[in-house]
Simulated scan of single mutants.
Amino acid sequence: MESKLYMLPIHPNASKREDGELPEVTGVYMFQPKPSMKKRPCYKVEYKDGSFDYVPLSGIEKGSYELVEITHT
């Protein structure tokens, strides 16, 4: 069986969509948000409309987000 991971924002300041859609985790990458910042490990998440974002792995450790597993048969 294959499972997909989705990002659930749980902290009030965590990034979330008005429609409540949970983005799918599509990978883990090193990402540099700005030239003045260091690269950091991030989850790449994608929404149904094709837009995407990067969520630092530390967002899970700090409790801002949870990973939700959905199994597809």
Rank of each mutant, 00 (worst) to 15 (best):
C42W: 06
H11D: 11
E24K: 01
L22G: 03
Y54S: 11
A14W: 05
Y54D: 08
V68A: 10
M30A: 14
N13F: 14
V68D: 07
E66V: 14
E18G: 05
E24F: 04
Y6N: 00
L22I: 04
D49K: 13
S51W: 09
K48G: 07
G50I: 11
G27V: 08
Q32C: 13
R17I: 02
T26F: 06
S58E: 02
V25R: 02
K44W: 03
I10P: 05
G27T: 07
S64A: 12
H11C: 05
G63L: 14
S51N: 13
G63E: 13
P35F: 14
D53N: 15
S15P: 01
K48L: 09
H11Q: 10
E24W: 03
F31S: 12
G63R: 09
L22S: 03
S64R: 03
K34P: 02
Y6L: 00
N13P: 01
T26G: 07
L57R: 00
P9R: 01
S51T: 14
L5Y: 11
L67W: 13
E61K: 02
P23H: 08
P9L: 07
H11T: 04
F31C: 10
G20F: 03
K62A: 04
D19R: 01
D49M: 09
Y29M: 13
L8Y: 12
M7F: 09
G63Y: 09
E24N: 03
M37T: 10
G20Y: 01
M7H: 02
A14L: 07
K16H: 15
V25G: 06
E61C: 02
P35L: 15
K48N: 10
S58H: 00
P41T: 07
D19H: 00
S15D: 06
M30R: 14
P41L: 14
G27A: 10
P56N: 08
L67K: 15
E18T: 02
I60Y: 08
K44A: 15
L5T: 07
L22K: 00
A14G: 08
R40G: 03
A14V: 05
L67P: 10
Y29P: 06
L5K: 08
S58G: 00
S51G: 07
G50H: 11
Y29F: 15
G63K: 12
Y43N: 01
D19S: 00
P56G: 06
K44Q: 15
S64K: 05
P33M: 12
S51C: 08
K34N: 15
P12Y: 04
D53I: 05
